[in-house]
């Protein structure tokens, strides 16, 4: 049997999908992914769980290794056109992701946004909206506030918008387009 890292295995991907689903259903809730290590970040594990040849991926900062692409099978695309975009939170956004259309809002980008940490940051985000009972806080480290400002525009015309999966080395949290953010 070929020895592959755990994040490529179906049993691990099932568990990681469930973590991602709960993260998307309950914005701000932080979930640890399975099978992560120094060479396999939560961002890569997220892509491994969701991508295949049917979708496109953009990696504008060339964060992925050459060996990751054949495993992900995704088609490479420009960030403005891709279904999934791998981004780094420290750098401000410099592209316009797909927002979908009125009849097909799901044809929009999912941004996988790697930050340094998902807790104990100075940036305190208060989240409200579907999936959140009242309000919850998320305190990421290494998220340029420009992402939050630009996201405001991207999600302004529901149902159009983008959905974000924030990742640190081992964990994920999600900001679906419906989440209202307040920065304090």
């Amino acid at each position: 049997m070929i020895d592959v890292a755990p994040i490529w295995r179906p049993d691990i991907q099932q568990r990681n999908y469930r973590a991602l689903l709960d993260a998307m259903a309950r914005p701000g809730r932080v979930h640890a992914l399975h099978g992560t290590d120094r060479a396999h970040s939560a961002a890569l594990a997220t892509l491994a769980t969701l991508l295949d040849g049917e979708v496109s991926l953009s990696d504008p900062l060339a964060l992925l290794h050459d060996t990751d692409w054949p495993m992900l099978q995704a088609k490479s695309a420009a960030p403005d056109l891709a279904d999934y975009v791998l981004c780094v939170g420290r750098l401000p956004p410099d592209f316009e992701p797909k927002l979908g259309s009125l009849p097909s809002p799901e044809m929009s980008a999912t941004l996988v946004l790697a930050v340094d940490s998902l807790d104990d940051g100075d940036l305190c985000l208060t989240l409200r909206g579907p999936g959140v009972r009242g309000a919850v806080e998320l305190r990421p480290v290494g998220l340029n506030p420009d992402w939050i400002a630009r996201r405001e525009d991207w999600v302004d015309a529901f149902p159009l918008g983008v959905d974000m999966v924030l990742t640190d080395a081992t964990r994920v949290a999600a900001l679906p387009r419906t989440t209202k953010l307040e920065m304090n």
Binding site: L50, E54, T178
Partner: peptide, 16 residues
């Protein structure tokens, strides 16, 4: 994977 991707979008766009 296709069902998983679709379900994540379904959650992100409630009722769609």
């Amino acid at each position: 994977r296709e069902i998983r991707r679709a379900s994540l979008k379904a959650v992100a766009i409630p009722g769609y």
